[in-house]
Nucleic acid binder design. Structure first.
Ligand code: MN
Ligand code: MN
Ligand code: ZN
Ligand code: ZN
Lengths: 142, 142
DNA sequence: CCCTTTTTGAGATTTAGTCTCAATCTAAAC
DNA sequence: GTTTAGATTGAGACTAAATCTCAAAAAGGG
């Protein structure tokens, strides 16, 4: 498994961009966190760590990380986007509890295969997908 | 197939709310449109039709329509929500072309069944789900 | 060192959506 | 038909996510 900083730097090079200390700090913060992060959380954590970076740079860098394929956006039914790193994880999708907010990850090869089939039938070239199932988790249903 | 206004009125009654002319205008606008609407589009169309309704009322009523089950929110990868009416349609999900913006609808019973199975295994009670597949449509891929 | 390009941060801006509140409407009770 | 409590609305203030602007700073290649 190659290190994510290495991959990111390589990606940046192809765009003639540099891996600055700000970008590295954001990368590290994203990969230090398991689960689903919001942009502002990254901004605030870096501030606490005295690795201050502006909000603009956080958003700009998240965009680069998504483009590089190391990170993806996740829509969890809220009014803002979450991010999760994908490097070193198998692809998965989400069950979202609308009561307690818990997010359960699942992956299902069969579903993925059928989705690929749907795309094939439409002549559609898939780049990514997201599946969200909203409802009540085990603890919240009744 | 029961008329949507009837269903909406019934739903409103259970909440001790009335089907006002503003709510009716919004309902009509939503059901007059096939495809995916944004809140502001509804606001502007009503303005053009001289059936002026405030933005606040549009958002408030869309919330009621979603709660009533006649309409659902659709996330298409943009920074705002789309709405589509569900009454009289079979459930479907979406392929979204990231180049031309086209949205292709699909439905697949097998996928739905497998999703239900995933929920069952997690003890999760599904209320709704959305699947979005992003990529290039037939005309845009190459 | 010079020169060009990249990068950044502060803060302004945009935009979706929500909230407030006073005025108006509704409907049921009298 | 009057009264009255509750529902409804619109204008515009407000919030929050995300983007944009632009001048200053940093980096990189000679
Ligand atoms: Mn996840
Ligand atoms: Mn649709
Ligand atoms: Zn829960
Ligand atoms: Zn297309």
């Amino acid at each position: 498994m190659r290190k994510e900083a290495e991959i990111f730097e390589e990606y940046l090079k192809t765009k003639k961009l540099n891996l600055t200390k700000e970008r590295k700090a954001i990368l590290n913060q994203v990969f230090a966190t398991n689960g689903h992060l919001e942009a502002d959380e990254i901004f605030l954590r870096l501030k606490k760590d005295k690795k201050d970076v502006s909000r603009a740079t956080v958003y700009r860098t998240l965009g680069l990380l998504v483009d590089s394929g190391l990170v993806r956006k996740v829509y969890l039914g809220e009014d803002h986007i979450h991010y999760e790193h994908t490097h070193g994880h198998t692809h998965h999708d989400h069950l979202v509890c609308i009561k307690c907010g818990k997010v359960i990850e699942f992956s299902d090869k069969k579903i993925e295969k059928l989705q690929a089939l749907v795309c094939q039938e439409s002549g559609f070239k898939e780049l990514s997908h997201t599946v969200q199932i909203f409802g009540y988790c085990k603890d919240c249903k009744e």
